[in-house]
Structures are given as structure tokens and as C-alpha cells.
């Protein structure tokens, strides 16, 4: 009886031991799986760090390649500096007026072609009146203080556009004259990085002016362009024109002076509080 009980107890303990060993084994297994997971996570983190590096490198690359906008940035930085240091009002309205006036007066001289005192006086008076009435129209959404630069850059932009138009003309002529007529019309749809309406319109009209492409519609920064064939579409996606327009209007990939102005106001408030 006693022996039977003992044997039974031993059996039981053995079984329990066995169970415990099994459980320990399972725990060990799961621990190993966790270890693996940790390893993997570590790898992921590493790769993320590599990616980060790559992005940094890419950014640096972009900065160095898109040199056209750096001048803009430099200028804006200076301006923001002055805004934050002196927290002064810019004389934007007056400058707009002066630029509008000089544009209109040049237009007047082109129309008139008379250089006697009387007609020049009339021209000055008319230009002042019209500029006074409409300077807020001509440069409505343009950021503060940039009108001079914009006009200069726009004038530089025009020869390039003409060159593009001539090139596209020749291309279309070749297409139309070639016996197979390899045209493949389709509608492109792309989102632009430009932000203000005047730059949208400049881009849209430049696209329309160039033969083989026509802007059909703009909806919230999304362009619908009808193009004549595939190569044209690739040209557009490459986005040289877009970059140049952005350069004119000092947009994309830079800080807004307008924002700086807004922040400057808050900044002044804060300084009062502190």
C-alpha cells in the first residue's frame, strides 16, 4: 500500500516535472521568437536611419542643383531678418504704385510715340490716375515688396518662352508633315507646386501659347492639359517651365515673407507680454 502510494506520488511528481519542463521549453521558445523580433526591429531602425541619411543627402543634392531658387531664398532671408529685427511696416503699397505707374507709362510711350512736352505731361497724368485706381488690381496676390524683382524676372522669362514656342512649332510641323502622322492626343492631369493664382495663370497661358499643348482647366492647383503626343507629356512632367514660373514669382521651396510678416506681428505681441 505504502509502496503503491509512493510510486503514485513519484509518478505524479515526474509528470509535474515533465509539465514544468515543457512549459519552460515553450517559454524559452517564445523568448527566442521575441529575440528574433527584436533583431528584426533593430534592422528596421537601421534601415530607417539609412533612409534618413539618404533623404538628407537628396535634399542637399536638390539644393545644390536647383540653384535658381537660392537667390530668392537669400533675399527672403534678408528681408525676414529685417522684418523681425526692426518689426517695421514695409512700404508695399507705394512700391506697387510706382511699379504700376512705370509699366503704364512705358506702355503709353509705346502707344503714343510723341515726345513733346504736352503729350508726355498728359501721359504722366493718365498713368498716375490709372495707376492710382488699379495698382491693387495688377499686383493683388503678390507678396510684399517683390514687384520690382518679379517684373525683371518676367521680362527675362519672355525670350525663353519665345524660344520654346519656336521649338514646339518646328516639332509640330514635323509631326504634321511626317507621312504617318504619329499623333497620340491625350489629357494630362497633374498637380502643380505653384501656389498663387497669378503663377497658375502664367503657367497655364505659357502652356497654351506653346503649340501642341492646351490648358483646359485649373481646379485647386490641378491642371488639365490636352497634349498632342507622349513626348510632350514627358516634357511637361520634367517641369522646367514650372520651375521657371516658380522662379519668377518666388514660389515653392522657400519661406513666405507674408507668413513672416504675420508671425512678426505675433512675435511683437509676445515680446510685449514677456
Amino acid at each position: 500500500m505504502e509502496v503503491t502510494l509512493l510510486i503514485q506520488a513519484t509518478d505524479d511528481s515526474f509528470r509535474i516535472l515533465e509539465d514544468a519542463r515543457n512549459q519552460a521549453k515553450g517559454l524559452l521558445d517564445s523568448a527566442r521568437i521575441l529575440e528574433d523580433a527584436r533583431e528584426q526591429a533593430k534592422g528596421l531602425l537601421d534601415s530607417a536611419r539609412i533612409l534618413e541619411d539618404a533623404r538628407e543627402q537628396a535634399k542637399g543634392l536638390l539644393d545644390s542643383t536647383v540653384g535658381v531658387t537660392s537667390e530668392t531664398r537669400q533675399m527672403e532671408k534678408q528681408k525676414i531678418q529685417t522684418i523681425f529685427q526692426g518689426v517695421q511696416e514695409t512700404k508695399s503699397g507705394f512700391q506697387n504704385f510706382i511699379v504700376t505707374f512705370s509699366l503704364l507709362f512705358v506702355f503709353w510711350i509705346l502707344l503714343s510715340g510723341k515726345f513733346d512736352m504736352f503729350h508726355l505731361t498728359i501721359g504722366v497724368i493718365c498713368s498716375i490716375v490709372v495707376a492710382h485706381l488699379t495698382h491693387d488690381l495688377l499686383f493683388a496676390n503678390v507678396r510684399v515688396g517683390d514687384t520690382m524683382v518679379i517684373v525683371r524676372r518676367f521680362i527675362i522669362y519672355i525670350p525663353w518662352l519665345i524660344y520654346q514656342i519656336i521649338r514646339a512649332n518646328i516639332y509640330v510641323a514635323c509631326l504634321a508633315l511626317s507621312p504617318k502622322m504619329p499623333i497620340d492626343p491625350h489629357v494630362l492631369r497633374f498637380r502643380t507646386k505653384l501656389e498663387s493664382d497669378i503663377s497658375w495663370v502664367t503657367l497655364a497661358n505659357s502652356i497654351t501659347l506653346t503649340p501642341r499643348t492646351i490648358t483646359m482647366d485649373i481646379k485647386d492647383g490641378e491642371f488639365f492639359v490636352h497634349a498632342l503626343d507622349k513626348r510632350v507629356a514627358d516634357d511637361l512632367h520634367a517641369g522646367e517651365m514650372e520651375d521657371r514660373v516658380a522662379h519668377i514669382f518666388m514660389e515653392a521651396d522657400h519661406i513666405y515673407i507674408q507668413d513672416a510678416l504675420d508671425v512678426a506681428r505675433i512675435y511683437v505681441e509676445l515680446r510685449k507680454w514677456v
Binding site: 502707344l111 485706381l133 488699379t134 493664382d197 497669378i198 497658375w200 495663370v201 485649373i218
Partner: peptide, 16 residues
């Protein structure tokens, strides 16, 4: 948007 912007830019010149 095109009509709005273009007319905005053109009006001073038309008036002149």
C-alpha cells in the same frame, strides 16, 4: 481662375 486673373492684369492697360 484664368478669367479672373487675366482680367485683373488687363484692366489697367485697357484703361490706359
Amino acid at each position: 481662375i484664368i478669367i479672373r486673373t487675366v482680367s485683373r492684369v488687363l484692366v489697367p492697360f485697357i484703361q490706359l
